[in-house]
Design a protein around this nucleic acid. Structure first.
Lengths: 221, 221
DNA sequence: GTCTATAACTTGATAGAC
DNA sequence: GTCTATCAAGTTATAGAC
């Protein structure tokens, strides 16, 4: 709708993603966007409100698509539970697909999400307000897909998964890429398939009753 | 050795972990540490050098222990490859153990690592310099433990694992903890066992040849 | 809606007395 | 080694002309 407003949103999204929220000043945003400093306070109210606008712009449609995909799977499954892979795909695909179409800045937004995830509780405050119902719906579907997994273990594995997701969205580890001998290209559909395969195997792993230090060299074998 | 110096290191570690590097001012550090602003520039040179000192203080002994554990496992295994679980334990245990003894601020440092991991390339610059050889040693052990996994898939799965690790170190997702019905207590040894079980299953997952959109509701079945 | 000008404050860093 | 005092630059935010 508004040219200046969108210009600010796009630029803020990119710089927040590249440098983080705290390290990005409003002045660097207006410089890159080619707009005036006052415009940022006119259209948004403050730096924090700008971040919220950046996040909400993309996460709201993504959340709606998540629920729609989950419902599709649920209808197809009838009374049977939706499979683990399908639950994960319904949740993850909207984010990854967004990154696929290069026209929009979806790829940038992916990195922003991955980054904000670690930066303070900025993101949790913004997202919790508008997507806690989505989280609960998916948590319920997940429990149905994994009926034998105790809730506490499920909780831990969900945290592991969120971390793996955030890392993937962030674009992976620089240290690691330096060691790899091959060029690493990013194909969202490809990454999604790999991530789902990895995580679903993790979710189905046997629960570690044996204490790990049993494995210590010297203590046994 | 020096009281003021250690006081600054401890406080900086805590505040960087809680708020992130960019969002933490030197003045908030000296206020909490009860020292003078100039002392921070006297003992360290700059804010960035302070961060480096904070990280190096703990990661250097951890890296040495990592290598020692790996060598122990390798000697015990003889000519056979060290198992995937053992490679992971050798790498992860030092960090988790550090968090266990509550006397030192190891728990805080864990959170700092998880946080810095996402914040810019601050950490990668600091760590790469002093632990790239550790990474290469472990990468080699990992390839031996998983000889059938193609390098590119191994690379992806390493990234997933690093993300899960960082998330665990960071202390997990606030959004998630709000949904959980049970009190979440952190026991490092316990978390380590759960993480290794999850990740090793992920590493051994079948490679996803099938494109994910085959699973889409409506496209088949 | 967009601009200039500026207020009000915080930041990292340093000089120099003790 | 530790302090005070201060610098120079950068920060968010706002008032008010156009």
């Amino acid at each position: 709708m508004n040219h200046t407003k969108d210009q600010i949103l796009d630029t803020a999204e990119r710089l927040f993603a590249e440098q983080g929220y705290a390290a990005t000043s409003l002045r660097s945003i207006i410089a890159a966007a080619g707009v005036n400093l006052a415009a940022i306070h006119y259209h948004f109210r403050s730096k924090e409100a700008l971040l919220e606008a950046v996040v909400v712009r993309r996460s709201q449609p993504a959340n709606q698509e998540r629920l729609k995909l989950l419902e599709n799977f649920q209808q197809a499954a009838g009374s049977a539970p939706v499979s683990l892979e399908q639950v994960m795909e319904a949740f993850l695909a909207p984010t990854f697909r967004m990154a696929q179409d290069s026209a929009s800045g979806g790829r940038v937004f992916m990195r922003l999400l991955g980054r904000l995830h670690a930066e303070g509780d900025l993101l949790s405050g913004i997202l919790k307000a508008q997507s806690s119902d989505v989280l609960e719906r998916f948590a319920a579907a997940l429990r149905r897909a994994l009926p034998d997994l105790e809730p506490e273990e499920l909780f831990w594995r969900l945290n592991f998964s969120i971390g793996a997701l955030a890392q993937t969205l962030r674009g992976g580890s620089k240290e690691l890429a330096a060691i790899a001998d091959f060029p690493v290209s990013f194909d969202a559909e490809n990454a999604l398939a790999r991530l789902i395969a990895f995580l679903s195997a993790g979710f189905r792993a046997p629960v570690p009753y044996e204490k790990v230090h049993r494995l210590h060299a010297g203590e046994e074998r």
